[in-house]
Write a protein that binds this DNA or RNA. Structure first.
Length: 228
DNA sequence: GCGACAG
DNA sequence: ATCTTGTCGC
């Protein structure tokens, strides 16, 4: 039996094979799309991880877009496999993510990852890679810049400027709050840059990060402290 | 060669 | 990501 895509990813993470990691990103880049391809977006999931020594923890929080209430939260804990290498974050965070994700009883319509989507040197950030593997719409929401050109947005709430890679708009540098550093929103998979920004904006309450991401961060921190 | 460099 | 207390400012 031939290896599935998921098996290949887990194998690369386990073996820490950087060459293969880059090769797979290039191979999967043919799936890249800047267009919307989704029907309803009722359940949105936020993903975040926390670390301690050799262990990593992941939380996935699912929010009902209508009520803005938490529908389900799942966690995972495991030994860290892949090192942190700019451009290869996916291989470090996907194993713990998929472990937690499999525990969900509900089925999210879209996921927001803590990191880049297409704003990546090979247009293959964690949000894009994960979206292709899951076959689901995803958005990248990073707290800092990795790749792409942009102008700093004005310092006023909801001000945004284009994030471009090779002259293509792949996302936005978005000021969710005044006097706070902007966040980097980009297309992950099957969500246009415009929709990605609109969705992120919809979930800005009184926090810097979209609600699903913010709650996933809080939940993950709490989970980690309880298990240390 | 030098600087940049998601979490 | 993580190490860490108070503190300045909207």
């Amino acid at each position: 039996m031939r290896k599935t895509l998921l098996e290949r990813v887990l194998s690369i993470s386990e073996s820490r094979d950087v060459e293969e990691a880059v090769k797979l990103q290039k191979e999967l880049s043919r799936h890249i799309t800047l267009n919307d391809k989704f029907s309803e977006l009722k359940l949105i999931a936020g993903v975040d991880l926390a670390y301690d020594k050799e262990q990593c923890f992941c939380a996935v929080v699912v929010i009902d877009a209508e009520s803005m209430k938490v529908v389900e939260t799942v966690f995972s804990q495991m030994k860290i496999t892949f090192p942190y290498i700019p451009g290869l974050l996916f291989y470090r965070e996907f194993p713990p993510f998929i472990s937690a994700y499999k525990k969900l009883k509900v089925n999210p319509d879209l996921l927001i990852f803590d990191g880049q989507g297409l704003s990546h040197q090979r247009m293959m950030g964690i949000a894009t890679m994960a979206g292709i593997i899951l076959g689901k719409p995803t958005i990248g929401c990073a707290k800092s810049h990795l790749y792409g050109e942009y102008q700093m947005p004005e310092d006023r709430k909801f001000s945004a400027s284009e994030l471009k890679v090779k002259n293509n708009v792949v996302g936005y540098v978005f000021r969710s709050k005044e006097n706070v550093k902007p966040i980097f929103i980009s297309t992950g998979y099957r969500v246009s840059p415009e929709s990605a920004l609109e969705i992120a904006k919809k979930f800005i309450t009184h926090y810097k990060l979209p609600l699903p991401t913010h709650l996933a961060h809080q939940a993950c921190e709490k989970f980690k402290k309880e298990r240390i």
